[in-house]
Write a protein that binds this DNA or RNA. Structure first.
Length: 425
RNA sequence: GUGGGAGUAGCUCAAUCGGCAGAGCACCGGACUGUGGCUCCGGACGUUGCGGGUUCAAUUCCCGUCUCCCACCCCA
């Protein structure tokens, strides 16, 4: 038997109804904030992620699905391509390629699959779905403003509330501008030098490769040491400090609860200044339901002639759906009516009725004339239809049909022209 | 990539010391020829994840492998 490959899965009904519900609420909420959808390719040139996400990140170093193109054209041949491991780089590439900066401030969102070759785990798959949004534009369009950070965070709080996610928790930090980061990294390395030997193996490695990640360490024995390390906040320049304070001030005034976490760092190289994560319990170890931050230098890094500060986030849709399954029962999609043709030649009559009703926006399931009436009733009951409509010779002659409410048991004779109205009630 | 647990019918799970692979639910048919849910009767259902080894005999013991789950790592 051929099975779905490791880390991928089929989403089946009725669960897909929940996914559709989530996506529909998402589109609705994003619309209120004037975001519009962008769709970028599933694969891109490998270079885009190497430069955008960062060569040193785990994602680029060991988790990407990369292959060499075998296109016929010489220009295709040998080109290194990669399934997108995240969507921000693609959006920024599109922003540059189509000169979207000329439109002013862009508020874009996407929903789609991403790919990383990780060991599968609860809430972690090799093909997973992200819902993300990006606010990006020339600095003159206000893209750098803390008002945009706060707006984005407030939108996320509204979205989670609207979906009925209970007990989410917003963690906020500033990781500084790129120059702040350089100074902070140096300070961290220096502070780690004398103490790293007594830390865990992972931290000893991080101290060299990515000192910021030491702050994220969960090993209990390392916590006292980590407490003595410098804080990012103290290495922010005046502009970054002011920016961060304005974000928190707006959040307070609009009433979005948050927690400042000086240790919050992000795993992608492009993040600057505001960094955040929404967490949720009962998701296992993968408790981050969404994460994001500002990326003021990314566009230039990817070759934009003009600076284009931006901020964005990505929601783990798989995790979001998982969090909703804990609380909500499954919403099952049920038809309004089951049409039961009864006897030879009735399929054609039933088909005509089904067409009429469906065009009147009624959800109809169609039976088969070879079924005995009892079987039709059982099927109608099983799929949860509200009504069963019997299409037999008598009914067709009279152009009046037996319509039974399966819940109440009430059965009435309804003229053809009134069926739609009767079922809509 | 590392560590731990688990794989038996569509689903949830049994199977004594190594001795004919089972139950409930679900499914199909009948009782019941134009009226469902209840009941009764019957039916179908398996490469015991896969491959190898030991044995007269393997779901059971051994080795390998794959997948899933949990955790680390990392991230969403």
């Amino acid at each position: 038997m051929i099975k779905a490959v490791r880390g991928t899965r089929d989403l089946l009904p009725p669960e897909t109804a929940l996914w559709n519900h989530v996506e529909s609420v998402v589109r609705d909420v994003f619309r209120a904030y004037n975001f519009q959808e962008i769709r970028t390719p599933i694969f891109e040139e490998t270079q885009l992620f190497a430069r955008g996400v960062g060569e040193e990140t785990d994602i680029v170093a060991k988790e990407m699905y990369t292959w060499e193109d075998r296109g016929r054209a010489a220009s295709d041949h040998g080109q290194s391509l990669t399934l997108r491991p995240e969507n921000t780089a693609g959006v920024v590439r599109a922003y540059i390629e189509h000169k979207l900066g000329d439109r002013g401030l862009n508020k874009l969102y996407y929903i789609g699959p991403q790919f990383r070759r990780e060991r599968p785990q609860k809430g972690r798959y090799r093909q997973f779905y992200q819902i993300g949004a990006e606010v990006i534009g020339p600095a003159t369009s206000g893209s750098e403003s803390p008002a945009r950070d706060a707006e984005l965070l407030e939108m996320l709080a509204t979205l989670l509330d609207r979906l009925g996610i209970q007990n989410w928790n917003l963690q906020l930090n500033s990781v500084g501008s790129s120059s702040d980061r350089v100074r902070f990294n140096d300070a961290l390395r220096e502070a780690l030098e004398p103490v790293k030997d007594k830390m865990c193996g992972d931290c000893q490695r991080r101290a060299v490769t990515n000192p910021l990640r030491v702050l994220d360490c969960k090993v209990p024995e390392d916590q006292p040491t980590i407490e003595t390390l410098p804080r990012v906040y103290d290495y922010l320049d005046e502009a970054s400090k002011k920016h961060f304070e304005e974000v928190t001030t707006i959040l307070e005034s609009v009433g979005v609860p948050f927690e400042i976490n000086h240790r919050l760092v992000r795993g992608l190289d492009y993040y600057t200044r505001t960094a955040f994560e929404f967490t949720h319990g009962a998701l296992g170890a993968q408790n981050a339901i969404l994460g994001g931050g500002r990326y003021d230098g990314l566009a230039e890094l990817l070759g934009s002639p003009q600076p284009a500060p931006g901020i964005g986030f990505a929601i783990g849709e798989d995790r979001l759906v998982m969090a909703l399954q804990e609380a909500a029962g499954d919403l099952q999609l049920k038809p309004d009516v089951y049409i039961a043709p009864l006897g030879a030649g009735m399929n054609r009559e039933a088909a005509k009725l089904a067409r009429e009703l469906r065009r009147a926006n009624i959800v109809a399931e169609l039976g088969d004339e070879t079924f005995r009436l009892k079987k039709s009733f059982e099927t109608a009951d099983k799929i949860g239809a509200r009504f069963i409509l019997i299409v037999g010779e008598n009914e067709v002659k009279a152009d009046t049909f037996a319509l039974k409410n399966l819940k109440s048991g009430e059965q009435v004779s309804v003229p053809r022209a009134e069926l739609g109205q009767r079922i809509h009630l």
